[in-house]
């Protein structure tokens, strides 16, 4: 508790001045290993990997790239963001035992066999049936959350809070899981105001890179 009290006090102090080296350090967000533009590829590759593992895969309905603001000393910092890749099944597919239940079991087994730590594995009951959540963090530090709910969704993040990149620096990555690039289900158009690039080579949705070295 003492540590937290000190922390609260420290957070207050930083809003007033930053004179000493320590206070100066408190005014600077923690350094990040990556830039925003660098975190999409590993996250997208993690989804593409999973598609190979899931039996009778029905295809995703849509994908989007979400962002969640990052804070420093209790106040949002517009220079930092946290990226979350979202792949979603249709409501119809989400309601099937395959997607709602079996995929959770498959993922649990798959991630355990790879030695990933399962960070969450639980379920809730309600009028809409059973909603299941399972989450693992890969060796590379990619966080993968599968929410088998009304709209079953993969939410994948990598890098935590990273410095914001200019939109022009973010490269288009074709979607995995059967979504046609640039289609209505490919909801990343806001990152590419000039339109979804057409020059990229079509990537087989079920393939994924062997490693991320050239993408980080």
């Amino acid at each position: 508790m003492t540590r937290l009290l000190l922390a609260g006090l420290a957070a207050l102090i930083t809003t007033v001045t930053a004179c000493s080296p320590m206070e100066k350090d408190m005014d600077t967000p923690p350094e990040s290993e990556y830039q925003q533009a660098e975190v999409y590829a590993p996250a997208e590759a993690a989804v593409a990997d999973l598609v190979d593992v899931l039996p009778d895969f029905p295809g995703f309905a849509n994908r989007s790239w979400g962002e969640i603001p990052c804070s420093h000393n209790g106040v949002d910092d517009p220079n930092y963001t946290s990226v979350e890749i979202r792949y979603q099944f249709s409501a119809e597919d989400s309601a099937t035992p395959l997607v709602n239940e079996e995929y959770v079991n498959v993922l649990r087994e798959h991630w355990t066999s790879l030695g990933y730590q399962i960070a969450r594995d639980d379920a809730t009951e309600g009028d809409g049936g059973t909603y299941r959540d399972i989450k693992a963090i890969t060796e590379e530090g990619v966080s993968i959350w599968y929410s088998a709910a009304y709209l079953a969704t993969f939410m994948v993040s990598f890098g935590g809070c990273v410095p914001v990149s200019d939109k022009g620096e973010i490269e288009y990555i074709p979607p995995a899981g059967g979504i046609t690039p640039g289609s209505d289900g490919d909801r990343v158009g806001n990152y590419f105001p000039e339109g979804i690039p057409t020059s990229h080579e079509a990537v087989a949705p079920f393939d994924s890179p062997e490693h991320f070295d050239d993408q980080l």
């Binding site: 922390a7 609260g8 420290a10 957070a11 990040s32 290993e33 969640i68 603001p69 990052c70 804070s71 420093h72 000393n73 209790g74 106040v75 949002d76 946290s82 979350e84 960070a119 963090i137 530090g141 966080s143 959350w145 939410m155 993040s157 990598f158 890098g159 935590g160 809070c161």
Partner: peptide, 13 residues
């Protein structure tokens, strides 16, 4: 301090 705004966050690297 960071956990004051972390209610919608994914995990920290």
């Amino acid at each position: 301090a960071e956990n004051h705004n972390s209610y919608w966050d994914q995990d920290d690297l």
